[in-house]
């Protein structure tokens, strides 16, 4: 009898959300959205529970989670950084900005820094093309970013945390 461990909070949360959608398998994507919104990510155990609640296979849930780029199985950093790689940003140098962030943080796209501060992702068009190239840190939009600005932007958040600790 394979056992899967989950916190009481997560278990109840998943069950509630699934119930809200009448445990209808067609609502899988809506369920995943809501669960990820609350928990920040979708670990395997959670997916198993969702599968059980919606009466579908865990394979199907995992197939869906890995299909859509919005879903993640890894916890995000405290400050999730997203670099817009839409065309407008690309032709205005987004790739160089992304490279610089990767170099500064020593992580690749899809990874989180070992201290859990930053995670990095590339996304497609936030629709702020007038501000291209655009970098999002959390909800905050940084527009017209050049490679030379990267250090400053990162420092803003790094130091922010320091002052919090002090």
């Amino acid at each position: 009898m394979p056992k899967i461990k989950l916190t009481e909070y997560a278990t109840n949360l998943v069950k509630e959300i699934c119930a809200k959608f009448n445990n209808n398998e067609g609502e899988l994507i809506n369920v995943l959205h809501q669960v990820q919104n609350k928990l920040g990510y979708l670990p395997a155990e959670i997916q198993e529970l969702i599968a059980q609640e919606l009466n579908i296979s865990a394979a199907k849930v995992y197939g869906v989670v890995t299909f859509y780029s919005y879903f993640t199985m890894k916890p995000q950093g405290e400050f999730p950084i997203s670099v817009c790689m839409g065309t407008a940003c690309y032709v205005r140098g987004a790739e160089q900005v992304l490279d610089e962030i990767k170099r500064q943080l020593r992580i690749d796209v899809g990874e989180t820094t070992p201290d859990g501060k930053f995670s990095l992702s590339a996304l497609r068009c936030v629709g702020a093309c007038g501000l291209a190239p655009v970098v999002l840190v959390g909800e905050k939009v940084h527009g017209r970013v050049a490679t030379v600005d990267v250090k400053k932007i990162l420092a803003e958040y790094k130091s922010g945390c320091l002052s919090d600790k002090e």
Partner: peptide, 10 residues
């Protein structure tokens, strides 16, 4: 044997 998955509280 019961080989189904069982969820347990952490």
């Amino acid at each position: 044997f019961d080989r189904s998955k069982h969820f347990e509280q952490e």
